[in-house]
Design a protein around this nucleic acid. Structure first.
Lengths: 327, 327
DNA sequence: TTGAAAGCGCTAACAC
DNA sequence: GTGTTAGCGCTTTCAA
């Protein structure tokens, strides 16, 4: 365990002061060519690497951005966080990752942890709508697909339109008994707007709207049980609009167990349209979110805040119906 | 922008010294009940949050672990990083995430970045086998499914056995013209061992072994082109052992375009068996890696190193054939 | 063109 | 039980 080389060691080796080394490091102020060379040589010889912690302490800036999302083990969030990471890297930030697993307490803990790490900004998106406190008025925050509070800008998609698109498609291709799966009801949530789109179209067509509640973070077996209920309680069902693609996939599995042929007996539409889903389940008809674009916009909004601008507006991006073979 | 509250402010408010506040904060040394209360009250009133950077500078410990993997936007790595995050969180560490996108230069940059952040440990796993330098003899490192160097412990699976299992299964159910997809050849790589398993079985059965090279980070269209070659150059193919599940899925898409029925005309086996894949493509026959266990073991190895133990041994975990409908 | 010294916010000897 | 003080490694006024 040889202790790390510090700036002072370099200064000694080069026969100059700490200040000079610091100046070379930061390319600041006037320096003679010769000094610069000497210092560079000393740095190289000693394999000097500046201690960022010390620098951060002085500068009060970490170049760290925190990400708090439910999990990275999901097509949508995986792609989103990967895209955020790419964008943030280009903007000169590194990422502190926190997976809350939709547990409000864990989310709160992670946020505390991140705040304690003196991050420069925070991007959040979780699926629960609990009252999480974001007191840090000073901290730049952007939320993705989640209403946090009125002074935190949100990047989202037109969920209402997505709900309408999916439902209209199902009606168009002949469905009359369309069931929707979604979270337990929260009026204001982004998912609530998908449901609203669904309900409005059903109403307009004079059809009954029925929604089954399925939590994002339930275990797979739990979800499947609910989906089985759909078929036992509503055997007449001929179309399902799922609130996300993995649910759509699970519903398809259950439906086949019940002997339903897709799309002949039952048509299914999902939501998200992540890259992985398109590879693993290319036949799925879905409402596609512009995930990479969402990441790009979120990082832009964050950067503007870090630069001191006050941003409170939200951005709404469009969705698109992708037609596969399931509907 | 009201400047952050610091320890000194709390001390002043409570009418004690900085030391006392620090003691309350760290629950160290003898303190009277009354003092503790006073300090706690002051902290609450001022909404004090300790500056972790300052603490880190003193302690020379960050409780940060760096993760460098190709991308989180992939069933295997997504699940792996989520599991690592969970394990590390329980062990008291936070995660600094770096997606190298299989670009050796970006990987190198990320590692430098992470090292500069004075992380306590590093867990790496990338698919390229370039000579990346890990000079930090002092830094605890664990690699996952990737040979880095002999003094860095690796957590991996029995890839050779996986290759054998898949190939034997295909032969068993009647395939005679089995093609394998894998990375461009690197003898020592973990993927190379999958290929070795495949080749050994083929040899034992007196069948010709043919491998098509497909890079992990090629765009989907590029990969599909290679898979199309398989069918045009080897129309006799009746079994494919893909080196991962997403490739298996893509091959299936291409095969269907060529009019092959699965599994009647062509049997396919993948590799990985991640949770998401099982949801989105439940029918896929695959060799399953114990992803969550890999994460658990990796974190254990890392912790042991952080505690000062010298670990250089690798751990090899078992794989399992999961039978779906594609083979 | 360079250096001395103060200080970023916190902790831990060592004193009292 | 509690306070004084030095210092973690770096940057930056200010002075020379």
């Amino acid at each position: 365990m040889n202790k790390p080389v510090k700036l002072e060691d370099v200064a000694k080796k080069a026969g100059v002061s700490k200040t000079t080394v610091s100046r070379v490091l930061n390319k600041r102020g006037y320096l003679s060519e010769e000094t610069i060379k000497k210092v560079h040589n000393a740095m190289k010889e000693l394999e000097y690497r500046p201690n960022v912690i010390a620098r951060q302490l002085f500068k009060q800036k970490t170049n760290l951005v925190g990400l708090v999302f439910p999990t990275v083990n999901n097509p949508f969030f995986g792609q989103l966080e990967a895209a955020l990471d790419t964008e943030l890297y280009q903007a000169g930030y590194k990422v502190l990752m926190g997976n809350s697993q939709n547990n409000p307490q864990k989310e709160q803990e992670y946020i505390q942890l991140l705040l304690n790490h003196q991050i420069d900004g925070l991007i959040i998106g979780a699926h629960n709508d609990q009252d999480v406190q974001y007191k840090e008025k000073n901290l730049p925050i952007v939320s993705i697909e989640r209403l946090v509070s009125s002074h935190i800008p949100m990047v989202g998609v037109n969920n209402y339109e997505g709900g309408r698109l999916a439902t209209e498609r199902l009606v168009e291709i002949g469905c009359r008994h369309i069931i929707h799966t979604n979270y337990p009801p929260h009026e204001e949530s982004t998912n609530g707007q998908r449901r609203q789109g669904y309900e409005d179209v059903m109403k307009e067509k004079g059809l009954p709207a029925i929604t089954y509640a399925v939590d994002f973070d339930w275990p797979v077996e739990e979800k499947k049980k609910v989906f089985e209920q759909i078929f036992s309680e509503h055997p007449e069902v001929d179309g399902i609009f799922a609130d996300n693609d993995t649910n759509a996939a699970l519903i398809m599995q259950v439906a086949q167990k019940y002997g339903r042929k897709i799309p002949e007996d039952l048509k299914i539409i999902g939501f998200d349209g992540a890259d992985i889903t398109k590879v693993l389940f290319p036949g799925l008809t879905t409402i596609q979110q512009p995930i990479n674009l969402m990441a790009k916009v979120a990082v832009e909004l964050l950067e503007q805040q870090i630069k001191g601008e006050v941003i409170e507006d939200s951005v709404q991006l469009p969705v698109k119906l992708i037609t596969g073979v399931t509907a």
